[in-house]
Design a protein around this nucleic acid. Sequence first.
DNA 1: CAGTGGTCTAGACCACTGG
DNA 2: CAGTGGTCTAGACCACTGC
Lengths: 281, 281
Amino acid sequence: MIAMAAKTAFTAPSAPHIAAADPLAASRTSPSSVAEITAASPAFSPLYSQIKNLILKSLQSGEWKPGESIPSEMDLATRYRVSQGTVRKAIDELAGDNLVVRRQGKGTFVATHAAQHVQFRFLKLVPDNGPPGSEGPAQRTIIDCHKSRASADVARALGLRSGDAVLQARRVLSFAGIPTIVEDIWLPAAPFKGLTAQRMASYDGPMYAMFESEFNMPMVRADEKIRAVAANDGREQLLKVEQGTPLLCVERIAYTYQNVPMELRRGYYRTDTHYYHNTLN
Amino acid sequence: MIAMAAKTAFTAPSAPHIAAADPLAASRTSPSSVAEITAASPAFSPLYSQIKNLILKSLQSGEWKPGESIPSEMDLATRYRVSQGTVRKAIDELAGDNLVVRRQGKGTFVATHAAQHVQFRFLKLVPDNGPPGSEGPAQRTIIDCHKSRASADVARALGLRSGDAVLQARRVLSFAGIPTIVEDIWLPAAPFKGLTAQRMASYDGPMYAMFESEFNMPMVRADEKIRAVAANDGREQLLKVEQGTPLLCVERIAYTYQNVPMELRRGYYRTDTHYYHNTLN
DNA sequence: CAGTGGTCTAGACCACTGG
DNA sequence: CAGTGGTCTAGACCACTGC
């Protein structure tokens, strides 16, 4: 901000980029030139960044759902009354965050866990022999799914309070018939109301795809803490390994839009036939 | 490629973006309009991508060294006879690959492992208590460093032949006095001629920083395969844990420019006080 | 204050997709 | 062929850094 010619797009944070089509436009007032100037620079945010946030809001609101296309760059430019280049930069960032996927000649699409080529978007386990997915689809076995109360650490991970209602599930993933992963999953009960073991078992596809389509809860990012632990607590039987066998323990917190944590998952991976792959830049 | 008006920048892959300042300019010939046209589209590469490659070559050649600044966007635009915007997009990609770092108002700098805030650019181990690096600097202890011959798997990882000369080293990293990591490192002998245990021990800073400054061998990318294994083979003593304790085994191949593998490293991490952190998008 | 990277625009044209 | 994303340019101005 700071005083500057009214012609430029930087003039005021609220004015030029809000088109009539934007539902928030009515709630804003044109600043009387001096008013906002004192607010000064700490609040500076480039136009494309503001556009990005507006698009983000539409994604969150479900205006465009996973797998669908969003309006063309030209349409968005008209809608927000900015140049195509500015919309472009906003979408570039969204694509960089893997929230949307661009496809030349076709359009820009909301990212989804359901697409074939991203079947295991959040699963970095790769077979020793052959590339990811070369073993065919995973076999999913639901061991259990029941309502529960959040312990202190589960509550902290999910941004709940101790004792809040959660869903707790356990499943086994097998590849080529070999049980390879046991996962314990915790979900806040409210957003996933109606989810049962039956329903998990009958859904054919990645669990995150089910979260999208059945509960309107896309997972867009995740953090993992990885440790080596000894197989115990019944997991050795599910994975058919000796008690004490070293396993990879992958604790994942998955987030939906706005960085809201929506799932805690502790996976135990056998690493005698697979490895966890990571790339460092 | 493909026939098109000479005015556009796409006309010929060799012509317009090569400035007189480019050392390769003299070795090229102006195509006689028809010659290259049959090569056709599969070879299509946007201008900014070609500029990116030219900048990459200068980085590889050492024209600009890690930590130094590269010429300004305007200078590069003049040098390559393209618009600033095209140079900008080229640099954007290089910055996205973490090969360079942009700093507004100062310039664009070649990435380095020596900078304070990236002390552990390739080390994703985080203490359970507190953020990365909160334990102060790592204590590095060189256990061994000797010449050796590449075994089959080491050769494969480094793109050598079995029996080729390699340097093999082992060291321990301790944090807050606790031995936390044992690493076995293999390097091709030729590029690291003159590296000894003594020299490794006396260098104060990340090993990758030493590779940059002492051997002109910047590591720009790495792949990791992570497994859980039982402590054995003398590593339990170095880490002061019981034999059989689960450890994270991190096998890393680090690459220099051109995706040339230059280091194989097998790290064994204690994960009772630390965890390996990863972010998924 | 000059120099650097960062933002924004307007317009032209290219590559790719599908009807 | 029209529509979409992708590339390129030229020019203006802004934000940040350091002299």
